[in-house]
Amino acid sequence: MIYAVFWLAQDLLTVLTSGAMQIPEIFLSCLVYRLLTRDWEVNIFVIWTAFLGGLLWDLRWVGIPGFFALSYVSVVMLVLWVWNALPVSGRTPLVIFFLFWTAQLIPTILSALLLGRNISEARWMLFAAQQGCAVPVALLGAFFYFQHEKGQNA
């Protein structure tokens, strides 16, 4: 349910800005947060939630089913791979931030490069603006992660 709320929030923000700027990937950040804080059964659920969320996004905004579904699943798999490869001592704030930032960077840069839209200077300005908004979202995700970890250790 919480994933649907975040997906809808991202959708409503996109409607609100009317495509004037790209909204940060709130839904995917929520999934990454779940990946980093839950056990493996949830991970499989997260993989398929990412797929469905991406598919719904494709049907709502892109019109090419599979594009964002692939992007989201790729991000989830990448995060899972890095997370499992990292020793516990390597899970530093910077790494956590980069994992959240990956969720912002990959779908946006893929859509900018592959969807064949106007990759003009203005488009790259929009991309930069989106990343400008994405960094606080990534920081927020990292903050919530450490809050959660602190609660677990307390």
Partner: peptide
């Protein structure tokens, strides 16, 4: 299990992308 699910999701995604 995670990798199997991930790869299946990616395959379905590629299939949809190709077939769309």
């Amino acid at each position: 299990a995670e990798w199997i699910h991930g790869i299946v999701a990616l395959i379905v995604g590629f299939f949809l992308l190709g077939a769309s």
